[in-house]
Write a protein that binds this DNA or RNA. Structure first.
Lengths: 204, 204
DNA sequence: AGGCAAAACGGACTATGGTCCGCTTTCTAT
DNA sequence: ATAGAAAGCGGACCATAGTCCGTTTTGCCT
């Protein structure tokens, strides 16, 4: 009998072999351990990750493409939890609050998250995973909220404009180099949002 | 007679030795040549730059600290010309036009410049020179224009918010990955500026 | 069960950024 | 002009990201 697996699992995702899956887990776990031990992303080398996971270096690169890819994968783990709290957590970040309040809460939360994972984000660079998964989720959400608020104009572009000052390169420039206090950055962003939005809400 | 050099050239900039100056020029020239030959920043290695300039690798690092530093130095050369046209070129980019027009022209010009030097900017990273020279010039100018326009609020933070969407990481995300046409990005930025500014100009 | 093709493995190898330290050049004071 | 010290020089050396390819494992099919 041929039993299970009747559906030919439409190609494009040709099933992950068991050893491959095992090794991916091992590698991510090893990388996370090393980041914690070393108290940072710097100093976590590909060799060490491979050794800790008990595999060869070639395997790391097959699974994650590059150092950036590995970091991006690591990042996605924490990002997922955060995305959950945006989609279904308590208001005002989650659903239930009026859209403007949600948008402001979103900005504050995103700011904190980005600063928290700053080094990891930079180490992940432009690498695929983040560029797609994270960026597009965040952009999507802001577009949605802007639409709910009733903003006229090129919503996708405006969403990008609101998100840009929350990017880690900008935040680090402000906090680390210009020494701007966080509270002021936050108020500045709130002000920006209100300015962008007010044009439409006052004049229908 | 003890002749020239009476002023003890107040320390802090302890005079550059002639060989050092010569080598710096040679290195920058070599780096520029290689960038042109290779049609890009990638593939320009420190070894090649040193060899082309006819010096050892150690010299490159003494002069420019790191690869990022070298790239930043390269960038500064072109940046300087651009800064001149902002400060004293023809309007609307240069002085003479009303501040709002100047601000819009500034955004367009900055957008083009950043896209043109995209790879170089990324290769220069956060490295000193750019973080200070370029960023602070640009920030200063936008603050000045916002003040002239009569914007109330936290002008430095608003300036950062307007500049953020012009950063290369954002622009490349939009043009290369999301395939947004340049014209649309430009119009989007104009809209953003008008929204940010309009709050103050209509309601004094 | 046994065989077979595809996928995965792993470690030696390469390329390149960055460091180090003994030697050379430049500058200044005599 | 000369000597001495400070600054600069340069290439051998190290660390780490990334590649390659012969070998091993896996999972399906008869």
């Amino acid at each position: 009998m041929d039993g299970l697996r009747v559906l030919p699992l439409l190609d494009g995702e040709p099933v992950e072999r068991s050893d491959a899956a095992r090794n991916r887990e091992a590698l991510l776990a090893a990388a996370e351990e090393l980041v914690h031990e070393r108290c940072g992303v710097h100093g976590v080398t590909m060799d060490k990750v491979a050794a800790r996971a008990g595999v060869g270096k070639g395997t790391v690169y097959r699974r994650f493409e590059s150092r950036e890819g590995l970091m991006a994968a690591l990042l996605n783990r924490s990002e997922t939890a955060w995305q959950q709290s945006v989609l279904s957590g308590p208001p005002p970040l989650g659903p239930g609050a009026p859209p403007l309040e949600r948008l402001l809460a979103f900005g504050h939360s995103r700011m904190e998250t980005n600063l928290l994972h700053g080094d990891l984000i930079q180490a992940a660079g432009q690498s695929g995973a983040r560029a797609y998964a994270a960026v597009s989720f965040v952009a999507m959400h802001v577009r949605y909220l802007l639409t709910e608020i009733g903003v006229r104009g090129d919503v996708p572009i405006l969403a990008t404009a609101l998100l840009a000052p929350l990017e880690i390169v900008i935040l680090q420039q402000q906090t680390h180099i210009e020494q701007v206090p966080l509270e002021r950055i936050r108020r500045g962003w709130d002000d920006l949002v209100r300015r962008v939005v007010s044009v439409d809400v006052v004049a229908p």
